[in-house]
Design a protein around this nucleic acid. Structure first.
Lengths: 199, 199
DNA sequence: ATTTTTTTATACCGATCGGTATAATTCCAT
DNA sequence: ATGGAATTATACCGATCGGTATAAAAAAAT
């Protein structure tokens, strides 16, 4: 029933994600979007609603396809492995050759006009949510004696997220993955690696 | 000779700086600027040139009034003091009650449209310049035996700048100064404080 | 008092912003 | 073949974008 759609919705959303990632929410115009996605404005509005709804769908896709390492890392039995996998996971996502540099959630609306205030607030809440989830993971680690002595779980979580947000700026400024890895190595120095098992 | 100016140029520039800092380069419209500065568009263009020139003047003011701690810190005799003063200096500037949160240089054009590409490039170059200056300072420290063993000066510089850029995102997301200080304390743990002088 | 110079205020410019109304297409169901 | 349903293409909407032309206003110099 009805004329069939002439474009792939998922493919178009991928393009929208890349555009928002690279140019930010307000920096990406509807013309950028329709030309990039290869569709017309009525098609875009028919399928995705409006610019804001399209962004939120693109963000959801970003979280699902590029940030999946985060929740995976939370499942690691040792907190230090969780921390390291999160740091390297962010660095990897921020420096993938085929993707824009940096972090979509930070690039999209760090500072913006009032028109994008809702998007900005949403992205800030996402950062808080992730940091809080990591804090809860570290709280469990503290109970397990799995945290370096003298550190609060939520301070540790903020520390890890701060490094990751710092590498996002570094990546957006041109730093390559190897450089970010060296930063991460330094950032984890204070956290002793677990002694190797064995006789 | 001629009609006297009815506004204070420096005061107007201060307001422009705060607006760009809070809303970004493209997120700040000429209407935002003229209303905030209390002047009309012809006055703005007569004194400052255009939006881009106004931004560059506001950025110069930002560097001069808010980032002065950076070059002061480079003069410290001990590299660890330099590092700590830079980290706390950034955190202070990013969380001053009367100023916008975060860093103007990062907030203004992290991701943007092609129209702001020149501004974006300029801000990236500023970050590279600062990181390089810190790297040169740490190079000197290495010659002086003033660096922790096993660290390259420019890796150390990137590490310090990454933390500072991370706290900029944290501040822009609502973190307060005390929280950033705790992050900084952790980030400097690997770098042993110089043994106190004395008998 | 008049001229000259500078800065104001007002109104306007073309271009682009996000968003939509209208109608021409292209399918399935009958 | 024909009617309904969905998607397309085209043209358009008011609002805002950065920027400017024009002229009134206000000072110093003559």
């Amino acid at each position: 029933m009805g004329r069939p759609r002439e474009f792939d919705v998922d493919e178009a959303l991928e393009t929208a994600m890349e555009l928002f990632w690279r140019k930010g929410y307000e920096g990406t115009s509807l013309t950028d979007l329709t030309e990039g996605m290869g569709i017309t404005k009525p098609s875009l509005y028919g399928v995705f609603g409006n610019k804001e709804a399209l962004f939120l769908k693109a963000l959801e896709r970003y979280e699902r396809t590029k940030m999946s390492f985060f929740h995976e890392a939370l499942k690691e039995p040792k907190a230090r492995v969780t921390a390291e996998k999160i740091l390297r996971g962010f660095a990897d996502a921020q420096t993938a050759d085929k993707d824009p540099s940096g972090c979509m959630g930070i690039n999209s609306a760090l500072a913006c006009s009032e028109a994008a205030a809702d998007i900005q607030k949403c992205l800030i809440e996402n950062r808080h949510r992730d940091e809080h989830e990591l804090g809860k993971r570290f709280e469990r680690a503290a109970q397990e004696g799995d945290l370096p002595p003298g550190h609060e779980p939520f301070d540790l979580a903020r520390y890890i997220m701060t490094i990751s947000q710092g590498t996002a700026i570094q990546a957006a400024s041109g730093a390559d993955r190897a450089a970010l890895y060296r930063v991460i190595d330094m950032a984890l120095q204070f956290w002793p690696e677990p002694a190797a098992e064995g006789s």
